[in-house]
Design a protein around this nucleic acid. Sequence first.
DNA 1: GTCTATACACAGATAGAC
DNA 2: GTCTATCTGTGTATAGAC
Lengths: 184, 184
Amino acid sequence: MPLQKTTPQAIIRESIRVFRRQGYYRTNMRDLAAATGLTKGAFYHHFSNKEEVMRQALRMSIGWFEERIFSLAYEKDKSAKERLENMSVLAFRAFTEEAGGCFFANTVLETAHVEDTFLEEIRSFFQHWERALVGVYSQKYADEELQNVVQQVIADIEGSIILMQLHRDPTLVQRAFDRALEKI
Amino acid sequence: MPLQKTTPQAIIRESIRVFRRQGYYRTNMRDLAAATGLTKGAFYHHFSNKEEVMRQALRMSIGWFEERIFSLAYEKDKSAKERLENMSVLAFRAFTEEAGGCFFANTVLETAHVEDTFLEEIRSFFQHWERALVGVYSQKYADEELQNVVQQVIADIEGSIILMQLHRDPTLVQRAFDRALEKI
DNA sequence: GTCTATACACAGATAGAC
DNA sequence: GTCTATCTGTGTATAGAC
């Protein structure tokens, strides 16, 4: 075996954990390198700067959500309620693990006014989430009301994630998911 | 030579604006000083470090919300609906002005995992908000349901503030306030 | 591919002149 | 009370040895 070759994927995977906990500006290159057991010097062999790492971290995370969670909204053989339940279980886990909250929400609030470097990626995440929810709620609501319900569900969950981080209590997020299930 | 005396109050007032837009870590002492037309050196004559400025900024902001907004929940001569409407108008303005969103939510997400330096202040803000909403919604709901409604209203608004900053569209927040008014 | 060493910029904070 | 100058630490990023 070649002495542990560190893959860019592994680096990004660990970087997501660090960014999600510490935020973008507070995280430095030493933190990111150390998370994969590298030194700064070795880290720069794989990525040319922090912005690039962050962008790839956001993209990998979006891909993960699409593949593992949003995709559940489109399983045609299951009822809308069932699909929403399946998504909720995994989304709850994703947002509460390591108490890191929502990587994308964290990043909007931190960077939106300073630079719009990551806006495109973050918007993509929320668009996919919205589309998935429209998929399940469209059996009960339509048009403007549908839009309003979906927006409320997302806002309720994201707001509850903030409160979870403030009170260190994941059940606050669980209740938001419960409210989302009551709406269908 | 500008020999005008700069009051700590004026400094904090401007610092709030900077912190709310740029966040805590991204803001440096030069930014804060410049916001009141001072240099770093002069700034340090009034405050000994950044953390102290932030803490006082949070406290002033809490005081402002209590005085100007949450207090409206306790005007006994008005109906619950009226009181909620009055709060909503001003709160909407406060959260959307300069597109800075909610100073407290921004700060939780940015700092909660790194240090709990400001948790106490931020919790105080949300407690006062919660109490005010309990005051108006208690005429229609009670006990657990009341708690749940209040939490949903706050979460919905805070989540919508995130979406506002993402899409640069304050009407998203307006709709959250509309939903809050429909619940009473 | 990974390391150590280092260049360079900027941040927080202090000293002392006016 | 405000300024300029400066100290010290830390951050991004690069160079070059192994």
